[in-house]
């Protein structure tokens, strides 16, 4: 067990997977000589050479499509799209091809590929470079969508994604790259599709993922220490498949639920979670399921405006208080 950053965990996992399996190779814009816009691939070109760490032309649809072809041959491409915002340019290849080839080829061709890409706001990168559109991909059968929040999950889920026989959207978060945490040594694989209960509690469930799962955990600890509120935190880790059982079981225990998500409210991940809860735990609910999400505006550039648009700990605490108060919970 070592304490390392989320960035380091990603880097080390890419490296160890490149060593483990000669069919694994990396492809993307500026990942070689420049070592990636966020330096996840630092040193890998030097170590593995340009065959396995390929700098590509600036054409997202192009390299995602080429990766699909390579995967159909049996290779295991790990594509980096510089940010999730640019994945929109590759939407047809992701949604119409990567996600569908296995089914449309009668199960005769697999597409074992990973698309790594960071989302998230808060970096003053403005509206076209700060989006959280993971739910677009989570909607599509044939894809898997994972959203690690911790360095340990970054490692375990990336290894699982690379070894998976289906296409995986591996969605990172810009604001998590420098966060630190304990990461198990050696070969460490986290099963895709299992949520984590990162803090147990009895009074209210907070469901979240990616960077907001880290915020949720901080808030839960603070409420425990300052107010004696016992909040349980469910970190989804995977949006598709979604671990409905863990969510429902938690709410059956607590009777209250709040979703914290960095994407937009309407049609967002929280809507799916709220529906899952009412289908699975309706009779256990003491209060309506609440959602804390981003303001429904293109994300502003100016710092105070950007902060105003994004969900945060303060907003989460307020909604938790409202939910508790509505059920006359003594705190």
């Amino acid at each position: 067990m070592a304490v390392i950053t989320y960035r380091q965990a990603l880097h080390d996992t890419l490296r160890s997977e490149l060593i483990r399996d000669p069919n694994v190779f990396l492809m993307g814009e500026e990942i070689g000589v420049f070592e990636g816009s966020y330096k996840i691939t630092a040193g890998l070109l030097t170590e593995f050479g340009p065959e396995r760490v390929r700098d590509t032309p600036i054409a997202e649809e192009g390299f995602v499509g080429a990766a699909i072809g390579a995967a159909m041959l049996g290779l295991r491409p790990v594509v980096e799209i510089m940010t999730i915002n640019f994945s929109i340019l590759a939407m047809d290849q992701i949604v119409n091809h990567a996600a569908k080839i296995h089914a449309m080829f009668g199960g005769q061709s697999k597409v074992p590929m990973v698309i790594r890409t960071p989302g998230g706001g808060g970096q003053q990168l403005a509206a076209t470079h700060s989006q959280n559109i993971e739910v677009w991909y989570a909607h599509v059968p044939g894809l898997k969508v994972v959203v690690p929040a911790t360095p340990a999950d970054a490692k375990g889920l990336l290894a699982a994604s690379i070894r998976d026989d289906d296409p995986v959207m591996f969605i990172e978060n810009l604001a998590l790259y420098n966060t630190k945490g304990n990461v198990p040594d050696g070969d460490y694989v986290t099963e895709i599709g299992k949520a984590a209960v990162t803090k147990e509690g009895t009074d209210i469930t907070i469901v979240s993922y990616s960077r907001m799962a880290a915020v949720a955990l901080d808030v839960a600890k603070r409420l425990q220490d300052d107010e004696g509120v016992s909040a349980e935190v469910v970190d989804l880790r995977s949006l598709r498949p979604l671990d409905r059982a863990t969510i429902v079981n938690s709410v059956k225990k607590t009777g209250r639920a709040v979703v914290l998500e960095e994407d937009w409210l309407s049609y967002g991940v929280g809507a799916e979670i709220a529906a899952t809860i009412q289908e699975g735990a309706f009779d256990y609910l003491d209060a309506p399921v609440r959602r804390v999400a981003a303001a429904e505006v293109p994300l502003p550039y100016a710092k105070p405006l950007e902060l105003a648009a994004l969900p945060d700990a303060t907003a989460l605490v307020k909604v938790i208080h409202e939910t508790l108060d509505a059920t006359r919970f003594r705190r």
């Binding site: 080429a66 072809g69 390579a70 159909m72 491409p77």
Partner: peptide
């Protein structure tokens, strides 16, 4: 055409 190109690269 992209799948073919990637397949050929492989």
């Amino acid at each position: 055409t992209l799948h073919a190109t990637g397949y050929a690269m492989g």
